Amino acid sequence: MRLHVAPDHPQFLEHYHAARAGIQLPPESTAVERTIKGSLDWLVARYLEHLSEMVDNGQASNLTLMQRRSLLKELTAMTAENGDRFGSFTLHMPQSQMIRIRNSMMATPGKAANMVKAIRALYRWAFEIGLTEHHLARDVSAPRLNSTGATPWTVADLQQYRKVHLPGTPAHLCLTLFMFTACRISDAYRLGPGNEIEIQGQTWIGWQPKKKGSAFVEIPMLPPLYKATRAINADNEAYLMTEYGKPFRSAEGLRNRFKKWCEEAGLGHLSSHGIRKAAGTLLAEEGCTTYEIMSIHGHSEAKTSEIYTRAANRKKLAQSAMSKLTSMDW
């Protein structure tokens, strides 16, 4: 059977596997057309096509699409003992196989949890549109993660970063934007002068977070942030620009750039989300209520912001309790 693409073509393997299954693909074809109907490859291709459409319609995050595509492509590339790809098998994957896949990845529990999440989303969609009679992955549980997530920045970390990245630099502006808006990186790369509004003679900044379910955020621009945004170029489309003078095209682009800035400051183990956590902690320690933190972080549920106020209240209670021992005759 003739192959219409050369070995160096990005779709060569797909054409090769299709030919082995007796299917001759045209030179240009869609991802779904390049798979065997009813196979796991076919299901994944259809699901990713659906997820891509959701991204185009603003109903899903491009970061979610990128992560799911990477994980599900890895899933289909896995091989059985006889060397056959999982992608060539029927889409009706046994639950026992899903559990084996999860267990094989337990050396990296975070990735194992994301793989389970991707598989469950895949089969939930398959069930909803009638490709399966049951939600085949419904009872596959994700591994327990003991980590509390991103490491919060300390005051010393913030000082160290600013010693290396001085005012007037994009790196300094980036940290200032994270610190004085507590925004996520999925929002930071999009913020700019167009988000500024005047309220009673004061400049505020407002945006709708991209994370699903988040509330609109509207906060005053404190002097450090206002000064930092004006120190670069107030006429830019976005506050944060690439070295080529263009806005970052994605959160991933800014994440990579910020990682380099952190490494230059000797803080390569930290991330932008850790600044958001640090801001929440500092707000709580300064006496902000749960609902005040919700208004800044865009949380739609109080339980998320209570993580910060609970920790701050425990510190105050501990301080009060220990003060009662100061008069003890020891």
Results as ranks from 00 to 15, higher is better:
193 P>A: 08
260 K>G: 13
301 E>G: 02
285 E>N: 11
294 M>G: 10
269 H>T: 11
251 A>P: 07
306 E>F: 01
274 G>L: 03
230 R>A: 14
266 G>Y: 05
222 L>S: 04
250 S>A: 12
201 G>D: 01
268 G>N: 12
228 A>L: 00
208 Q>E: 11
205 I>H: 05
213 G>V: 10
295 S>C: 12
254 L>S: 01
233 N>K: 11
199 I>P: 03
297 H>V: 11
271 S>D: 10
224 P>D: 13
259 K>N: 02
194 G>Q: 09
295 S>A: 15
214 S>E: 09
234 A>S: 15
259 K>W: 05
251 A>C: 04
239 Y>N: 06
270 L>K: 12
272 S>A: 15
278 A>V: 06
209 P>L: 00
300 S>K: 13
190 R>H: 08
243 E>K: 14
308 Y>G: 03
197 I>Y: 05
223 P>F: 12
250 S>N: 07
203 T>Q: 09
202 Q>V: 15
283 L>K: 00
219 I>D: 01
228 A>N: 09
268 G>F: 11
266 G>H: 03
291 Y>K: 13
206 G>K: 12
293 I>E: 00
287 G>C: 08
277 K>V: 05
251 A>V: 04
230 R>Q: 15
194 G>T: 11
283 L>Y: 04
233 N>S: 12
289 T>V: 08
216 F>A: 06
213 G>F: 10
269 H>D: 13
302 A>F: 05
219 I>Y: 01
228 A>R: 00
281 T>D: 13
266 G>W: 08
270 L>S: 06
198 E>V: 10
198 E>I: 11
191 L>C: 08
245 G>R: 11
229 T>W: 05
259 K>Q: 09
190 R>D: 09
220 P>C: 05
211 K>C: 04
251 A>E: 06
239 Y>E: 01
273 H>F: 06
240 L>D: 00
234 A>E: 14
207 W>P: 01
251 A>Y: 01
290 T>M: 07
226 Y>I: 12
222 L>Y: 12
217 V>D: 04
197 I>P: 03
